[in-house]
Amino acid sequence: MIVADKKPIEEIIECLKDHKNILVLGCNECVTVCEAGGKKEVGVLASALRMNARKEGKEVKIDELTLERQCDREYLDEIRDSIDQYDAVVSLACGVGVQFTAEQYHDKPIYPGVNTTFLGATEERGVWTERCQACGQCILATTGGICPVARCAKRLFNGPCGGSTTGKCEINAEVDCAWQLIVDRLKALERLDDYEKLCPLKDWSTDRAGGPRKVVREDVKQ
């Protein structure tokens, strides 16, 4: 899923200081699972914003709503009739949701309420870690199912570097060395000989480097 982290409330308050009618808009997908932008977080943020406004002696209306998704037009259409009441929206969706909402409601300021961080998994409640950088050309078949692009600090295709120490990365003893994981996994798969296969230069044109990306699927297009 897309993992996001909460933005400091001070930062959101600063963005909203000139607005009087605000909608705090959550998303029921990834940001709900990572407890950054679901219904609960919408409630807490809205309450904090209301108290802050009240204390400053400002008359501000703050409403709460959580959509099924903010990355699909059909769900964003649900606020079409009510959006005019607001002069600003704080979206607690990921960066995709914030932008898609802004595209649908072109004359409405949409502020981000979370920091979108990575594509990752839940290690345990409250701990999420990165797994994928969506480079557009998956090489997991050759690396034992562990991604050096996302998980090696130097994204080495032929690692590990000389900084790998007792299974940890040179940048931080809390970070696993991706290539240690790859070697361990190749061993478990009885494929350690594959380690010596040279990984060719990567075609980064499918990555961010190639500019904004697009997937068109003729087979499912309507």
Partner: peptide, 26 residues
């Protein structure tokens, strides 16, 4: 490949790592 930039004076900088040291040899 080079030491990670977090050790240096530009720890907020981007790193490139378009290719790795073995690919540079090639």
């Amino acid at each position: 490949s080079g030491d990670h930039q977090s050790f240096g004076d530009c720890s907020q900088g981007q790193n490139v790592h378009d290719i790795d040291s073995i690919q540079l040899i090639q």
